[in-house]
Amino acid sequence: NKFNKELQWATWEILNLPNLNEEQVKAFIDSLKDDPSQSANLLAEAKKLNDAQA
């Protein structure tokens, strides 16, 4: 289903952001699991944090 694909993509993207630490990655992944419908928003937040920590 649509959410599953978005969830998988967002998870992969977050796991490959170079500037997030392990705790941050885990928090984002946990949030994705809690509410897959928010995957696009969570991914945007993760990318923002990644850029801020570059």
Rank of each mutant, 00 (worst) to 15 (best):
L7R: 02
A52E: 14
K33Q: 11
S39R: 08
A44R: 12
E23H: 11
L42E: 01
S39H: 15
N1L: 04
K5A: 15
A44M: 13
L15W: 06
S39N: 06
K2T: 11
N21G: 08
F3E: 13
F28V: 02
K47L: 11
L20A: 00
T11N: 05
N1W: 00
N16K: 12
I29R: 03
N21E: 07
P36T: 05
E22D: 14
A10W: 07
K5F: 06
N4P: 03
K26G: 06
E22W: 08
D30E: 12
N19Y: 13
S37Q: 09
L42I: 15
L43E: 01
D51Y: 09
A52W: 09
A40E: 09
V25W: 03
N41G: 08
A46T: 01
K47H: 10
L32S: 01
D30H: 09
N50A: 04
N1Q: 04
L20I: 05
D34M: 15
Q8R: 06
K26P: 00
Q38E: 05
D34F: 11
W9G: 04
L7D: 06
L49P: 00
A54F: 10
W12T: 15
A10E: 02
E22H: 14
I14V: 06
N19A: 09
W12N: 14
N50K: 01
Q53M: 06
D34P: 02
E23I: 11
Q24K: 01
A27M: 13
K48S: 11
A54G: 13
D30L: 08
L20M: 02
A52S: 13
K26E: 05
Q24M: 04
N19H: 11
T11Q: 09
T11V: 09
N21L: 14
S37V: 05
N50D: 06
D35S: 07
P36W: 05
L42S: 03
S37M: 08
A40M: 15
S31R: 14
S39W: 14
L42Q: 04
K48E: 10
K2V: 15
K2I: 12
E13N: 05
L20F: 01
N21F: 13
S37I: 04
P36R: 03
S37H: 07
D51T: 07
A27P: 02
L17A: 01
I29A: 02
S37N: 09
L17K: 01
E22Y: 09
E6T: 04
A52F: 13
K48H: 10
L20R: 00
N19I: 01
N16Y: 04
K48Q: 13
Q53A: 05
L15I: 12
P36K: 03
A44N: 13
E45M: 13
W9K: 08
A10N: 04
E45K: 08
W9A: 15
N50F: 01
S31I: 12
K5W: 11
K5N: 11
Q53D: 03
E22A: 13
A40V: 13
E45H: 07
F28R: 00
D51M: 10
A54S: 11
N16I: 07
L7K: 03
P18G: 07
A52R: 12
V25S: 08
K5Y: 12
E13Y: 07
L32A: 04
D35F: 08
D30N: 12
A10R: 02
W9H: 14
N1F: 00
V25K: 15
A46G: 02
L32M: 14
K47M: 12
A46I: 02
A27I: 11
I29T: 05
S37G: 08
N1H: 05
A46Y: 03
E23V: 12
L20E: 00
E6P: 05
S37D: 05
E45N: 07
L17W: 02
Q8E: 15
I29H: 04
A10G: 03
F3W: 11
S39I: 15
E45L: 10
P36G: 03
E45W: 05
Q38Y: 04
A44S: 14
D34K: 15
Q8T: 07
N1A: 02
P36D: 03
Q8S: 04
Q53T: 05
L15E: 14
N19D: 07
L43D: 01
A27W: 14
L7I: 14
N16Q: 13
K5V: 12
E45D: 10
E13R: 03
L15N: 14
L49N: 02
K33R: 12
L17V: 00
W9R: 09
T11F: 11
Q8A: 13
E13D: 03
L32G: 01
F3Y: 10
L43F: 05
A44P: 01
N1P: 02
E45T: 09
S37A: 12
L20S: 00
K48N: 13
A52T: 11
K33I: 06
N1Y: 00
P18N: 06
N16R: 10
A52V: 13
F3N: 08
D30Q: 12
P18M: 08
N41P: 06
W12S: 15
E6Y: 09
L49G: 00
K2N: 15
E22I: 10
F3S: 03
A46R: 00
Q8F: 06
W12P: 02
N41D: 11
A40W: 10
I14M: 05
N41T: 14
A10P: 02
L42V: 15
E23M: 13
T11Y: 11
L15V: 09
W9P: 02
N50Y: 01
N50W: 01
K33V: 10
N41W: 11
N19P: 00
K26T: 08
P18T: 11
Q38R: 13
W12F: 09
